[in-house]
């Protein structure tokens, strides 16, 4: 009788504990720390034939970490991301498993806009191309980086030509030719993001692309206003507010990364956020 009573008491306690515990675990603060991942040569030795699994684990670890950063940015919580550690971890993963497509896909997704490590990303993509000889996406990514970020249209065209040969896709051919001309860059970037978005099912990456699309759409709309202002007045505007005052755009769009848009000396639309997480100054709500 005592044993049964004790068992029932424990069971009732367990059930009543699980309600607050589940809520607590759901709301528990996520420790936003990526930390260190050991060097590739050491891991290769230790992991043996499990190194492909370790490589995948490294990618998933970075993906989850970055997903948390994106989630926090959505809620306007500024966290300084460990970009260097992220990049290093993915480099390690590429050395452990050079055929892993996720490594290259995620490196392209995270380090071009946020870290501006274009040369490093393209070097990693070149490394990937040596192993994934059938994959048209890697030269496509590298071509986009060369054109959009480095303004090196000759290299971009060569990458796109390679991508077109591998994919037999007319889009790659047309992009290869379009990159030879410096025109409509932001629209090309928008096309590229949509291309990337269509090739993932991961909600975290889709969220990231939504951020970028919003930012690019905002830039495109301001740039169109600037162009209209120049055509109408003959001189470029000194501030974005001038375009709004002249009625070329209704209002200054919001930067999803938390920054403020401005025009540089060449009349190009920029943002204080540099379109990266953790770079915008924290805005105390005093207004």
């Amino acid at each position: 009788m005592i044993k049964k009573g004790l068992f029932l008491l424990l069971l009732c306690s367990y059930i009543s504990l699980m309600i607050p515990l589940t809520a607590f675990m759901k709301e528990r603060p996520v420790a936003v720390k990526l930390g260190y991942f050991p060097e590739a040569h050491a891991l290769k030795t230790v992991a043996g034939d499990h190194r492909y699994l370790v490589a995948q684990y490294a990618v998933v670890k970075v993906l989850f970490y970055f997903g948390t950063i994106v989630e926090k940015a959505k809620n306007m919580i500024v966290v300084k991301p460990e970009y260097q550690n992220m990049f290093k971890t993915l480099q390690t993963a590429s050395k452990l498993d050079p055929w892993n497509a996720d490594v290259y896909y995620f490196t392209q997704a995270a380090f071009t806009w946020e870290l501006n490590k274009i040369q490093d990303v393209n070097e990693m993509l070149d490394y990937g191309m040596k192993h994934r000889t059938w994959d048209y996406q890697l030269p496509y990514f590298a071509g986009f980086n060369a054109a959009y970020f480095l303004k090196d249209y000759g290299t971009a065209a060569a990458y796109m030509k390679k991508a077109a040969e591998l994919s037999k896709d007319q889009l790659m051919t047309s992009l290869a030719s379009r990159y030879l001309y410096e025109s409509g860059q932001n629209e090309i970037a928008l096309q590229f993001i949509e291309f990337m978005q269509q090739r993932t099912m991961d909600r975290k990456l889709i969220n990231l692309y939504e951020f970028r699309k919003k930012a690019l759409i905002a830039v495109i709309s301001i740039q169109k206003g600037v162009n209209a202002y120049v055509r109408s007045r003959g001189t470029p505007p000194s501030r974005i507010e001038d375009i709004v005052a002249a009625g070329f755009i209704d209002r200054i769009p919001e930067d999803p990364y938390g920054g403020t848009f401005y025009l540089d000396e060449k009349g190009t639309v920029r943002s204080t956020s540099k379109f990266a997480f953790g770079t915008a100054p924290i805005r105390w709500s005093t207004e």
Binding site: L6, L17, L21, K33, G35
Partner: peptide, 29 residues
């Protein structure tokens, strides 16, 4: 919290102890 010396509140410790008592007790019964 131990690795990066992050702040540790009493709540997770409290829940861990209660959870341990209940679950282990049930398993022993």
């Amino acid at each position: 919290q131990a690795i990066y010396a992050l702040p540790l509140t009493p709540a997770p410790i409290f829940y861990a102890i209660l959870y341990f008592i209940c679950y282990t007790g049930i398993m022993l019964c």
